[in-house]
């Protein structure tokens, strides 16, 4: 990773979880490790997708239209570890026609948790089911998020349970708004 990304000025990741992990590399290696300096450099230039747009590019107004009810899944690692909280909401609410509805108990983990979701499938699914119930309660037509893992898990759960809102990554949603072409 350190080698691959060396030549670039910025690294953008679609998941807050990945951003947090990269920002964490130094502690994983230990500060005395020979790669620590490189790890620090990579951490400094790695950004979660929405944080990159808002904080690095300084852009807060998104183009296009998205006339739908959207609710936001605030992924744990993105918010608590990578400290990306407001940026995606800022982008979403700037889109014309988009109605952003708050998700009840938004701070609760969805139950994905990496290997957790297959090591403890019952607990993971029970957590996910609660999250899905909250999503349904918003009557949103789209559930958006910025963590691929959570979205994969929630999409899987929602799809199994019958008619459900579409699950979109923030990037997909922005693309759809700008181009008018549905992603999926």
């Amino acid at each position: 990773m350190l080698r691959v990304f060396e030549p670039y000025d910025a690294v953008v990741t679609p998941s807050g979880s990945c951003a947090a992990m990269v920002q964490h590399y130094e502690t994983v290696f230990g500060t005395a490790h020979s790669l620590a300096a490189q790890a620090r450099a990579l951490a400094a230039k790695t950004h979660e997708f929405s944080a990159f747009i808002v904080n690095q590019l300084g852009v807060t107004k998104m183009p296009g239209r998205f006339p739908q009810r959207v609710t936001w899944h605030a992924a744990c690692h993105g918010t608590r570890l990578a400290q990306v909280r407001n940026e995606p909401l800022q982008l979403l609410s700037s889109i014309e026609g988009l109605e952003l509805v708050p998700l009840p108990r938004v701070e609760d983990c969805c139950g994905f948790g990496g290997a957790f979701c297959v090591k403890f499938p019952e607990i993971s699914s029970a957590m996910g089911a609660e999250k899905c119930a909250h999503v349904h309660s918003t009557r949103a037509t789209v559930l958006a998020g910025n963590d691929a893992g959570c979205l994969l898990h929630l999409q899987g759960l929602l799809a199994r349970a019958g008619p459900a809102p579409r699950v979109l990554h923030l990037a997909e949603l922005l693309d759809e708004a700008a181009t008018g072409r549905p992603t999926c």
Partner: peptide, 15 residues
Amino acid sequence: VPALDHWQRTRALPP
């Protein structure tokens, strides 16, 4: 792959 099995019992696989 048991993990796959654990996944799909409650969750659809992504397209």
